[in-house]
Computed example of a mutant assay.
Amino acid sequence: MKQVTLSHVGKTYGGVDAVHDFSLTVKQGELVALLGPSGCGKTTTLRMIAGFVLPTAGEIRIGQHNVTEMPPYRRSTGMVFQNYALFPHMTVSQNVGFGLEMRNVARADIKARVLEMLRLVHLDHLLDRYPRQLSGGQQQRVALARALAITPDVLLLDEPLSNLDAKLRHAVRIEIRQLQRKLGLTTIFVTHDQEEALAVADRLVVMNKGRIEQVGTPRELYDTPRTAFIADFMGRANFLRGYVSAPGTFLTQSGQRFYFSGSAPSSTSILSVRPDCIDLVPGDAAPKHPNVLSGIVRAITFLGPVNEVMIGSDTGQTISVHSRTASHDIASLKEGEPVRISWPVKASQILDASDWPDNEGRYKNRTED
């Protein structure tokens, strides 16, 4: 396992930047997730690390070696593709041993290594089956065993769980994380699924339009997003537009006053608050928090452990609130009823309004302003 360093890496197709000025260091033994919407450049970045795509700018290093123009087979990277890319005419054991055969490893050593890898992913009882005889989850684990068999310095995963159903995806991502920690593998994981990224990564790199928007731990990106794009992409968020009228005080365009902690842009801003940070205020009870807003219940949607309550607020905007299904407050709530909500000061995030989406819902890129 080795550190991966990308310095000002870029890739241009026909004059369009697929990836622009991308710089990142993935530490030895770290699992980093590249996260973003379709077309943001995350898979192109991964393929440049693997060597399947040559960058048009910048440098890529694995350990102390500059691998920018090195062919894939010399980079000591193991890659699991989105569609697994298993050879249909080969058995499980032949698929796992393929990379070792290409490296001219002795037959006896290949057999021992294949068995070791299949035991690692709990598939040693299926070594004579063909891919068509396996479930999606089993195929995914065969692809992972094949990538690990060559003892790579870096493991690259390109949307490896996207073809699995929700329950299996949850189980397999836990397996991948446990395996990565056990082996201490430097790993780069591409996904568009926020929950998946939050669950497995040491750090997240959120990309937008080929650029890095923010890098940090899952908790940092969820709790303290730098931009409206991050706040909206990393889970659900409510946005209120206005301005900072005094230190710690935000005034909406419709005149409501809310409070926040920490520093904030002094210009026109956006207040962001997560639906799970908002409390319903029952009846005439006193609000728990200083930020209070009134409105009308527009819809209540059952989501299993939580209910999503959509509230037409006095600001003129619809506010989403997530309330525990078992809560007494949600049980007595009816559509069309007046309601109050409140949230703590620390839950208010103030963001620069330059990141507010336009009328088509497209976020501006701050670096282009």
Rank of each mutant, 00 (worst) to 15 (best):
A50T: 00
G51L: 05
H89P: 01
R226Q: 11
D21L: 05
T45E: 04
H328L: 15
V114M: 05
T249G: 02
A201K: 00
F250D: 00
Q349I: 08
T25D: 08
Q3V: 08
A246F: 01
D232Q: 08
A285T: 13
V190L: 12
L351M: 02
P265E: 03
G255L: 14
G235L: 00
F239I: 13
R236Y: 12
M1Y: 10
L148D: 05
F258Y: 06
T301H: 13
D193I: 09
Q180V: 03
D232E: 03
A237S: 15
T77D: 06
H192T: 02
K209V: 02
L179R: 09
V19M: 08
L251Q: 10
M102S: 06
D314H: 07
L221T: 10
L161F: 14
L351Y: 04
L54E: 15
T77K: 09
A331G: 10
Q256D: 09
A347H: 04
V105L: 09
V190S: 06
R141Y: 06
G39W: 02
Q133N: 12
R324Y: 10
A149N: 10
Y243D: 14
G255F: 12
Y222R: 02
R211I: 11
R181T: 02
G41I: 07
V172I: 15
N365C: 01
M310G: 10
Q139A: 04
D314F: 04
K167H: 09
H289C: 12
F189W: 13
L6P: 01
D193M: 12
V215R: 11
S23K: 06
V309M: 09
K27M: 07
R129I: 13
S245W: 00
L31C: 14
V4I: 13
S23C: 11
W356N: 11
R219P: 00
Q82I: 03
E175S: 03
A331Q: 15
D17S: 06
S93E: 10
D109K: 14
L86A: 13
I176R: 00
M79N: 05
S342P: 14
F302R: 08
S76V: 05
I300K: 12
D358L: 10
A237H: 06
D165L: 05
V16W: 02
K182N: 02
V297A: 07
R324W: 11
T45C: 00
V306S: 14
K111E: 12
F189N: 04
V114W: 08
T44Q: 03
P88F: 05
R203D: 08
Y243N: 10
C40I: 04
N307I: 08
F22C: 03
Q180F: 04
Q3G: 02
L161C: 10
A85P: 00
K209D: 08
Q3C: 06
P71K: 14
E159Q: 01
V19N: 15
T91M: 03
E159Y: 05
R324S: 09
R366A: 04
F258L: 07
D21T: 04
V53Q: 14
P338N: 07
R366I: 04
G316Q: 12
D279G: 00
D158R: 05
N365L: 10
R226G: 15
D128S: 11
N95F: 09
